[in-house]
Simulated assay, not measured.
Amino acid sequence: MAETELVFPSRKRRNSPGKQKSPIQIAIAIAMAATGWSDLPAELLTDIAGGITELADIARFRSVCSSWRSAAGHAAAAPPPQPPWLLLPSSPSRLFFCPREDRIYPDLRLPRPAAAASHRRRRRLYASPHGWTLAVDPTDLAASLVHPFTGATRPLPPLPAFFAETDDLAWDWSPHGVMASCGEGLLFCAADPPAASWAPIPALADCNASSINYAAGEFFVFEEDVCRTTVVDAVTLDVAGVIPAPAVELPSEARLVVAGDELFLLVKSKWMYLFGDDVDFSKAFHVNHRSVDPAWQELDGIGDRALFVDSLHGFAVPTAGFGNLESNTIYSVSSKEVSNRRPTTVNYSVSAFSLESRSSKKLACRLNGREMAMRGEMPSWIIPSLVEG
C-alpha cells in the first residue's frame, strides 16, 4: 500500500504560562537555525526521529522535507503507544481533540467527498479504538471504512435498509472484517476477500447488541439490557463463550471494557445519567474470559491503567509514560446542548472518574466552554495511528 502523508495543521497562538513547545518542535527549530533543512546527517535525523514519542510530532517531523520524512520511516511505522484522542462530530468539519496536547485538529486526513456526491458530506462517522472509522451516509446507507490519520478509504457494501430506522449503531473492525448491528441481530462483512454484501450471523440472530469490541482475534458483543457478553471468533464467527450477568439489579446502565484476556464491566443505577458530570458507578466487575466457567468478580481498582469508555467501545490504556493520565481512573466524554441557539450547538467535556475515591471531576481543557454545531453522532475515543493494518 502506498505511503500517505499526514500533516497536522499549524495554528498560531499566544504564548501563555504552561504552554510549552514539544521537544520535537524545539529540535526542529534548533536544526533549522543551525543548518539547512536537509543538511543534517541521515544518521542523526534517524536517531532524533527514533526518540519521538508523539504521533503529532512524528507527523511534523515528516513534513519538514523529503530527507526528514525518510529518516522518520520507522518511527511512523511503529510509533510508541499513543494515548487516545477524541473524535468530535462537529459540523461542518469533524474535530479531533488530542488531550495530551490540549489541542483541536479539524478533519485531519479525512477524504473530501466529490462535488457530485456532496450529500455525503452529511455522512456519519463512528470511531473504533483501532484507528479506523465507519462512515455511513444516512440517505442511502452507503458505507466505508475511513482512516482519519492516513486518509485511506476502504469501501463496504451499503448497510441494509433497516439501519435507517434507528440511530443506534454498534460496530467494530478486525483484520478479518467488520461486525455491525443496529440493535437485534448482527451482520458481518468479510475483508479478505471483500464481501459483496453484509451477511447475518445466525448464532446471534436474537442478540440485542448495544456495543461490539474487537481484540486479539475475537469480537465481544455486549447486551446492556441483560448485561450479557458473547465472545465470537473473528474468523469462524462461532460463539466461543457466553458470560452471563453478575449479581446486579436489572435493567442497569452498563459499559463493557476489553483489556486483553480481562474484561471490565461498569454498572450504575438506571436512574442515574450515564457518564454525566456526576458520574457515580455503583459497581465495577472484572473477569478473565479465557478461564474455565468465567464469572464476574467485583473489584475496587484497576492498578496502573486507565479505562476509556463511550457509547461505542471501551478499552484500557497503561498509564506508565503518560504523565497526564491518572491510574485507576475511567475517562468518559459527555455532551450538553446549549440552549437558545440556532442551529443547535453542543458543548463537550471530558470527565475522569476515580475508582479509588469513587468521585468524578471535569478535566480542565480547551474543550470546556467551546460550542460546536451538533451532528447526529456521539463523540468517541480513537487511538491515533499511522498504521492501517
Rank of each mutant, 00 (worst) to 15 (best):
N324T: 14
S291R: 04
L299K: 10
K336Q: 15
L299C: 14
R342G: 04
E326G: 03
R305I: 02
S349Q: 07
E326N: 02
I302W: 05
S357V: 01
G323E: 07
R358S: 10
L299R: 13
A352N: 03
E326I: 00
F322P: 11
F353A: 01
T345G: 01
E298W: 01
R341N: 07
D304M: 13
D310A: 07
S339T: 11
S360V: 09
P294S: 10
V350E: 03
A320L: 06
H289T: 03
S335D: 11
Y331R: 03
N328V: 00
P318A: 12
Q297M: 12
P294T: 05
Y348S: 07
A316S: 15
S311E: 11
P294N: 05
N324Q: 15
R305G: 04
V350Q: 09
F315L: 00
S359L: 05
N324I: 05
S359A: 09
D304F: 11
V287Y: 02
P343K: 00
Y331S: 02
Y331V: 07
Q297A: 15
T344P: 09
S327H: 13
L299H: 14
S335T: 04
T345D: 10
R305F: 04
E356S: 12
S291M: 12
W296I: 07
N328E: 03
I302T: 04
A295Y: 07
T329H: 10
S351V: 10
S357W: 05
N324L: 06
K336D: 15
G323K: 08
S360I: 00
S359K: 14
A295Q: 12
V309I: 15
R305C: 11
V350R: 01
D310N: 14
P318Y: 00
S349H: 09
P318F: 02
Y348T: 01
G303P: 10
A306L: 09
V333L: 01
F308W: 08
A295R: 15
A306K: 09
E337A: 05
Y348I: 06
N328Q: 06
W296T: 11
R358M: 06
V338N: 13
R305N: 14
D300W: 04
F322D: 01
V317T: 11
